[in-house]
Simulated assay, not measured.
Amino acid sequence: MTGRPMLALVAHDAKKDAMVDFALRNHDKLKPYGLVATGTTGQRISERCPTLDITPLKSGPLGGDQQIGAMIAEGALNGLIFFIDPLSPMPHDVDVKALMRLAVVYDLPMALNLTTAEILLRSARLRGLESTSTIPEISVSKL
């Protein structure tokens, strides 16, 4: 992996074509990132966008989701784009929920559909230009 901002790309089976199309359309915007992607998603993006710097991980159900979760916990990612399929049952649904929970816990920018992914790519925070801010605690006495 590189010293560049890092972005994880994940897509459920029914959304892999959408992720590949997203990568093709946003090739120039993705080029500055070090990318990690789970199994088949990463393979398919690499085939269509061979000049992108993609580090392949295991397939989601075989541990790829946990690999990305570990990267989130270590602070190694700047963002997560996860095209989910809410209409199909997922045998590894617990892994998917854990990954999304980690993104929320660590305040990692996360996009779960095409529209938010497009917005996320325009984010200064995702590009590593804006540091992560902590949410100030509010004293109960001030309420």
Rank of each mutant, 00 (worst) to 15 (best):
T55W: 06
L126C: 03
E118P: 01
V10A: 07
R101K: 14
P136M: 00
Y33D: 08
V36F: 10
S123P: 10
P89R: 10
I81G: 00
N78I: 04
L108P: 05
H27W: 09
S131V: 06
S88Y: 02
L121M: 12
R25F: 07
S131N: 08
D95W: 12
T40D: 06
F83V: 03
P32G: 09
T41R: 05
H27G: 01
K15G: 00
V94D: 15
L52K: 11
Y106I: 00
A37N: 09
L7A: 10
L77H: 06
M110Y: 08
K142V: 11
S46T: 13
N113P: 03
A111M: 09
T116V: 12
G3R: 00
I54D: 08
Y106Q: 03
L35K: 04
D13C: 00
R44C: 01
Y106S: 00
D17I: 05
A98N: 12
E118K: 05
K58N: 11
D95L: 05
S141N: 10
D13W: 02
D13Q: 06
L129P: 03
A23M: 13
D93I: 12
F82H: 14
F22P: 07
E137M: 13
R25M: 08
K29W: 07
N113C: 10
N26E: 14
G42L: 13
G39N: 04
T115Q: 14
P32S: 14
T116I: 12
I54W: 11
C49L: 10
S46A: 15
P91Y: 14
M90C: 05
L102C: 03
G128H: 03
A14T: 14
S88M: 12
G63V: 03
F22L: 06
L57T: 12
R4Y: 10
M90K: 09
G69A: 11
R125F: 02
H92K: 01
F22Y: 08
T134G: 00
L80E: 03
R122Y: 02
L9I: 05
T2C: 01
I81P: 01
M71Q: 14
E74N: 14
T40G: 07
S59W: 06
S123C: 12
E47N: 13
M19N: 07
I45E: 04
Q43I: 11
L126G: 01
A11P: 13
D13K: 04
K58E: 15
L99D: 10
P136E: 00
P91R: 14
L108S: 07
L77S: 06
M1Q: 08
N78L: 07
K16Y: 10
L52Y: 15
D28R: 07
H12L: 00
V20C: 04
A70Q: 15
A103K: 03
E74L: 15
R48D: 09
L120I: 11
N26R: 14
I54L: 10
G64K: 06
G34L: 09
R127L: 05
P50Y: 08
V140C: 02
A70V: 13
G39L: 09
R48L: 11
F22W: 10
